[in-house]
């Protein structure tokens, strides 16, 4: 059997081109293996060969999502590999998103087996775990050896078209897909066996792990609205016109903090939305629809509230991983507490 031909995708850092200052480079194609490709090639032994490597800047990919994907897919078409590997990306957020996005595109649009690897908290995992196999790694490149060890056997299986077992057996992030199968014993017997183990304190395995719902206790109500400082926080993507911090339209990698000083009413000349998950026309025409500055200014003038906090905090909720959203919220919460804010109005879309 001839060797499996592999195309490898990495970013500017692992490609040896440079760090953040080179993150805006467009994709380029190199012959053979580069950087982490050495370790991957080593693990392939003689079964497969990295025939070429694509190197692309993380900023370039994430800020030119469609263009970058099309450029890279074109390179993949030219090489026409048997297998596409992206990363490992470890805990690099934008790199992880790029790896998972392009691997999913290669798999779905070109029908070529594709795989990537990254740390469990990398937003790329939650975004694409349902679409492709993502192998878990540690949070830094120090774990490269183990990452390759997990990645390579699964990648080869995919390339050979072999049927995969479950995520536990094969070592990839569960896709959260429930699939029926016929067990060896009937359900009642499995239940009796499970109960006896549970009674004896032995290890048992549930067939359906309960989803755990995250619940937040409501805060105590305000005692005096008239003296309260109220802040506005939104996941609806309202930003100053031009989106100065380039908050992403989907799966935001950051939040923004902007002053409301001097604004009584948001207009299409001053504000817009960065959100890519809803029809932006109405929010762009009047951003108060998502971030109700006009109403709060009136209440402030009428003495109904103490005052509107001078800063507002904003991000894009669209496709943003829960882990990222939690981190932004914790950060924003600390800043609001430090500023003496009494209450927050949270708006979505």
């Amino acid at each position: 059997m001839s060797k499996i031909r592999v195309l490898h995708y990495i970013n500017q850092f692992f490609g040896g081109i440079g760090g953040e200052e080179k993150a805006d480079i467009a994709p380029s194609l190199r012959e053979g293996k580069v950087g982490p490709g050495m370790a991957i090639q080593g693990a392939f032994r003689n079964e497969a060969e990295i025939v070429a490597t694509i190197i692309c800047g993380d900023s370039y990919f994430n800020e030119n999502l469609e263009k970058a994907q099309e450029e890279i897919l074109q390179m993949v078409r030219e090489i026409s590999p048997d297998l596409f590997i992206a990363g490992p990306a470890f805990n690099a957020g934008r790199y992880g998103v790029a790896c998972a996005t392009i691997a999913a595109a290669v798999k779905e649009e070109l029908g070529i087996p594709a795989i990537t690897a990254m740390y469990e908290e990398n937003p790329g995992v939650d975004l694409f775990r349902k679409q492709l196999e993502i192998v878990p790694t540690t949070n830094s490149a120090a774990g490269m050896r183990n990452a390759v060890k997990g990645l390579v056997p699964l990648a080869l299986k995919l390339a050979r078209g072999e049927e995969l077992l479950g995520p536990e057996e094969e070592g990839y992030f569960p896709k959260g897909i429930r699939v029926n199968y016929f067990a060896e014993k009937r359900g009642s017997e499995r239940a009796v066996d499970m109960l006896l183990k549970k009674i004896k304190g032995e290890e048992f395995k549930t067939e359906f792990p309960m989803p755990v719902f995250d619940r937040v206790d409501p805060a105590a109500p305000l005692t005096d609205l008239k003296s309260a400082t109220i802040a506005l926080v939104t996941s609806g993507g309202i930003v100053p016109k031009g989106n100065p911090d380039r908050i992403e339209a989907s799966n935001a990698s950051k939040y923004g903090a902007y002053s409301l000083e001097g604004f009584v009413d948001l207009t299409e000349d001053t504000h817009e939305t960065a959100h890519g998950g809803y029809d932006p026309v109405y929010a762009n025409r009047d951003a108060d629809r998502v971030l109700p500055v006009d109403v709060l200014r009136k209440m402030e003038a009428n003495g109904e509230i103490g005052k509107l906090h001078e800063m507002f905090y904003t991000t894009v909720g669209n496709g943003t991983a829960v882990a990222s959203a939690k981190a932004y919220a914790a950060d924003i919460g600390q800043k609001l507490l430090a500023a003496g804010v009494d209450a927050v109005i949270l708006t979505s879309t």
């Binding site: 359900g187 499970m194 549970k198 048992f204 549930t206 309960m210 989803p211 755990v212």
Partner: peptide
């Protein structure tokens, strides 16, 4: 200790939440 026997409505693609209610106490499910 309990073991519960149920079935699932996880959507035709199997990707949705299977049950309408859940609790961490239900740690042994068939």
């Amino acid at each position: 200790p309990t073991v519960i026997i149920t079935d699932e409505y996880a959507g035709t693609d199997g990707a949705s939440q299977s049950l309408a209610d859940a609790d961490p106490a239900a740690n042994a499910v068939v």
